[in-house]
Lab assay of single mutants.
Amino acid sequence: TGIVNVSSSLNVRSSASTSSKVIGSLSGNTKVTIVGEEGAFYKIEYKGSHGYVAKEYI
């Protein structure tokens, strides 16, 4: 489990790349469930599926 550490919002992406499609966003202080790691990204549970967020903001 981690907490989103941004002042505005954090993009949730379809894969572990900054060039991948943005599938949603999370507000600061949102609790997320981390299910894996891939490079500079965490794989998280997101809306019944999975998404990826940059580690530096969790």
Rank of each mutant, 00 (worst) to 15 (best):
1 T>F: 11
2 G>W: 06
3 I>S: 06
3 I>W: 13
4 V>C: 06
4 V>R: 04
4 V>W: 03
4 V>N: 04
4 V>A: 05
5 N>A: 09
5 N>M: 12
5 N>K: 11
5 N>V: 12
5 N>F: 06
5 N>S: 10
5 N>L: 09
7 S>F: 07
7 S>H: 13
8 S>I: 11
8 S>M: 12
8 S>A: 11
8 S>R: 12
9 S>D: 10
9 S>Q: 12
9 S>T: 12
10 L>T: 11
11 N>I: 15
11 N>G: 09
11 N>L: 15
11 N>H: 15
12 V>W: 02
12 V>R: 01
12 V>A: 01
13 R>Q: 13
13 R>S: 06
14 S>L: 13
14 S>E: 15
14 S>Y: 12
14 S>N: 09
15 S>V: 06
16 A>Q: 03
17 S>I: 06
18 T>A: 14
18 T>V: 13
18 T>I: 14
18 T>M: 15
19 S>H: 12
19 S>I: 10
20 S>P: 02
20 S>G: 15
20 S>R: 03
20 S>L: 02
21 K>L: 12
21 K>E: 15
22 V>S: 07
22 V>D: 04
23 I>M: 08
23 I>H: 02
23 I>C: 05
23 I>Y: 03
23 I>Q: 03
24 G>C: 04
25 S>R: 13
25 S>T: 15
26 L>S: 01
26 L>W: 02
26 L>Y: 02
26 L>D: 00
27 S>L: 14
27 S>Y: 11
27 S>G: 11
28 G>A: 14
28 G>W: 13
28 G>S: 14
29 N>E: 08
29 N>M: 14
30 T>Q: 12
30 T>H: 07
30 T>F: 07
30 T>N: 06
31 K>C: 11
31 K>G: 06
31 K>W: 15
31 K>R: 11
31 K>L: 14
32 V>T: 02
32 V>M: 04
33 T>I: 15
33 T>A: 08
34 I>A: 01
34 I>W: 05
34 I>M: 04
35 V>I: 15
36 G>Y: 04
37 E>K: 06
37 E>M: 09
37 E>T: 09
37 E>Q: 09
37 E>A: 08
38 E>G: 03
38 E>P: 01
38 E>T: 08
39 G>T: 03
40 A>Y: 09
40 A>L: 12
40 A>H: 10
41 F>P: 00
41 F>L: 02
43 K>H: 05
43 K>I: 14
44 I>C: 01
44 I>T: 01
44 I>Y: 00
44 I>M: 01
45 E>P: 05
45 E>M: 12
45 E>L: 15
46 Y>E: 01
46 Y>L: 03
46 Y>N: 01
46 Y>S: 01
46 Y>R: 00
47 K>C: 12
47 K>S: 09
47 K>R: 11
48 G>V: 04
48 G>H: 07
49 S>N: 09
49 S>E: 10
49 S>W: 07
49 S>P: 01
49 S>R: 13
50 H>S: 07
50 H>I: 15
50 H>A: 07
50 H>V: 15
50 H>R: 05
51 G>S: 02
51 G>P: 00
51 G>T: 01
52 Y>F: 11
52 Y>D: 00
53 V>N: 00
53 V>C: 04
53 V>Q: 00
54 A>E: 15
55 K>W: 03
55 K>E: 01
56 E>N: 08
56 E>Q: 13
56 E>K: 15
57 Y>N: 08
58 I>P: 01
58 I>A: 02
58 I>N: 02
58 I>C: 03
58 I>V: 10
